[in-house]
């Protein structure tokens, strides 16, 4: 299997996963939240940073040209919607967290390194998200909107569950890491036929 095809398919499948994450809702104290941020975090921790960035970039591109992958649909006008900054933050976030994880390529990253990577991702997503939110409402739509309302909507409501995700996900990432950094897994369907028909391989 060529690496190029394999990488393409990995990017495509993780783009699909990130997209699906926006549509899966989990009830949580105060506000239900979607799995999307968790999927993005974990993708950033596990995929090579080049592939992770490609997956998120593909997601953004698909949404912008009108494919219905964002929570509110898609289309070029999404740039002007208040939540677009968070989505851009995903792209920068996975690149940075991927870089942190890969900083010492020889060793398997421990909980602390993964935690730092997740928190960096979190800060970038929320930082860019809030900047864009303020930019859109203030500059594009005219006058000031009460900053407190914005901060509440864009941060206070969703941040706690996302911080909880940052604390918990490194545990999952540690268990998943070997799968992602070894030779490609033997396909399930193929492994059955191979063992039954050609036992010598």
């Amino acid at each position: 299997m060529h690496e190029r095809t394999r990488n393409m398919m990995r990017v495509a499948l993780f783009t699909a996963l990130i997209t699906a994450g926006a549509f899966i809702r989990i009830p949580f104290p105060l506000v239900p939240f979607t799995l999307q941020f968790m999927f993005v975090l974990l993708t950033g921790l596990l995929l090579e940073r080049r592939l992770a960035l490609s997956a998120v970039a593909l997601y953004i591109l698909m949404g912008l040209i009108g494919l219905p992958v964002f929570t509110g649909g898609g289309g070029p006008d999404y740039i002007l919607r208040p939540t677009f900054g968070y989505i851009v933050g995903f792209a920068v976030g996975v690149w940075v967290s991927g870089s942190i994880v890969a900083a010492r390529p020889a060793e398997r990253p421990g909980y602390r390194r993964l935690l730092v990577a997740s928190l960096a991702n979190f800060l970038i997503v929320y930082g860019l998200g809030l900047i864009h939110l303020i930019f859109v409402t203030r500059i594009l739509l005219g006058r000031d909107t009460a900053l407190a309302v914005l901060l509440f909507q864009g941060f206070v409501v969703t941040a706690p569950s996302d911080i909880a995700a940052c604390l918990a996900l490194p545990l999952a990432a540690r268990r998943l890491y070997p799968f992602f950094r070894s030779a490609p897994a033997v396909p399930r369907s193929q492994s059955k036929t191979l063992t039954s028909r050609t036992p010598s391989r």
């Binding site: 299997m1 060529h2 095809t5 394999r6 393409m8 398919m9 990995r10 495509a12 499948l13 993780f14 699909a16 996963l17 974990l42 596990l46 999952a172 998943l176 799968f179 992602f180 490609p184 897994a185 396909p187 399930r188 369907s189 193929q190």
Partner: peptide, 15 residues
């Protein structure tokens, strides 16, 4: 995540 990864690698092989 394991399943998504496996699916991706299976797809690449199939293609």
């Amino acid at each position: 995540f394991v399943s998504a990864l496996k699916r991706a690698d299976e797809l690449a092989t199939a293609m």
